[in-house]
Design a protein around this nucleic acid. Structure first.
Lengths: 242, 242
DNA sequence: TATATCTATTTGTATAGTCAAAAGCGGATC
DNA sequence: GATCCGCTTTTGACTATACAAATAGATATA
């Protein structure tokens, strides 16, 4: 028999991951959950605490509990949103959409992405310029089935990564990091020599097992690195403090 | 006033991080902690649950709670211990110590590592061979002050990474991933062309603010990648299940 | 000897409350 | 209007207790 606190946890998790409850939405009060599930407040509290640890919920006294704003997994990468990262570091950042067109997913690519062939996609190429120098080229596919609003989005105001984050509240992601040599096209765009080493991050994200997007971000090897400080596992008890 | 469960948490965490309690050691029973801290079992349980989530403790009914075996942060990278990874994937792995000597840390390097100049170090170069092909070159510095046992260790049986894990129970680490071109020496060892892109992972680890080791692992770009599936944050409630 | 059963220990989940701390809100006062 | 005060809501920490589930170790049985 599944423990009650786990049932509460998975129920709420599902609501959030599916996008049913969106960031900022109110999560039922402890008291209401106590009524809904017919259990004690301790049990409800245990479930909510777990949701806080998972990063899905924030709680505040007197005001209540709310769906947290999605955050990129900073343990993986500090670059999902290059603009934010660059601005934080004190650099000026701008982006530039190079190409943008709607296509259908061909069988080869569909197989590679483990997705359905023939699906309508938006294919984007975007150049990121930090401090006046080309720093990353972002090649992205967005599944229009999953994110229909992308069809009419120009990405002039916010680059695709940032825009997507505001559209798709929560998702799981697969990351791969590789070192590659710059091909001719990449070299020209990034203003480096052909064959120079580049750091490539690919990320594929899903929401509820429906693919959202696939992106390949290529950096000049000499101008970028991924870094982070980690403990063997995330510290939990202290994370709860303000 | 600090909550009791947090005090218990930090007390035990400190014991483990300092190496005072080693992996496999018994953590006091809940009942004993109840006596020690003069609180209820629920409070003790909360602290221990948090320690489990942090990955520092494992609990088992009837037998008790024990200091967990250190695990590499799998959220970061799947390669700390190349041997284990490679074996898991079904490949044959072996390693070979190329150089091994004791030196003192020169000022330049000390500054780069934010460590004390003149400290005695063990400098190792180790080649990892997977499935008959050179897959990684590991260049490592071990602080002999922190890990005195390394002085007489040959690393014939276990490669440095694995050996260190058994010596230094817990630590924090800083990771950096870069793409570089192979220099002449690296190219020769890895049997690739000079200038080929390589994926480099550097990791610096500390135990209790004392530096333990610094390592630079270089992979041929075409033969290796870092990959992982992540959720926005670690799932917590489910992690507890067997 | 090997196997099944019992028992004691230790953790896991849950209850039904108490008291405390934070913070939004309204009202009284200046 | 602005400021302070107290009321109320909601989460945070904790207690004392209960029963359940797992299982190591002892005991009984075939």
């Amino acid at each position: 028999m599944e423990p009650i606190y786990l049932r509460i946890f998975t129920d709420i998790e599902a609501k959030i991951l599916s996008g049913d409850w969106r960031p900022g939405d109110r999560v039922p009060r402890e008291h209401d959950l106590v009524n809904d599930y017919g259990c004690s407040r301790m049990t409800v509290s245990k479930a909510l605490t777990a949701l806080v640890d998972r990063g899905l919920v924030v709680r505040k006294r007197k005001t209540g509990s709310f769906v947290a704003s999605p955050q990129i997994d900073r343990t993986v990468m500090d670059i999902q949103d290059i603009g934010t990262e660059a601005t934080l570091a004190g650099y000026e950042h701008r982006h530039q959409i190079l190409t943008r067109r709607i296509e259908t997913l061909d069988p080869v690519e569909a197989a590679r992405l483990d997705s359905t062939s023939g699906a309508e996609i938006l294919r984007i190429q975007c150049l990121h310029i930090v401090d006046g120098r080309p720093t990353a080229i972002e090649r992205r596919i967005i599944l229009l089935d999953t994110v229909p609003l992308a069809r009419n989005e120009s990405f002039a105001a916010a680059p695709p990564a940032k825009w997507l984050l505001s559209q798709v509240p929560w998702s799981k992601a697969k990351h791969v990091i590789r070192a590659v040599s710059a091909d001719a096209a990449t070299a020209r765009i990034l203003e480096i020599d052909r064959g120079e080493p580049c750091l490539t991050l690919t990320r594929q994200t899903w929401q509820n097992d429906r693919m959202v997007t696939y992106v390949e971000i290529t950096h000049p090897g000499d101008r970028f690195q991924f870094a982070g400080i980690f403990h063997p596992a995330e510290k939990r008890a202290s994370r709860r403090q303000p």
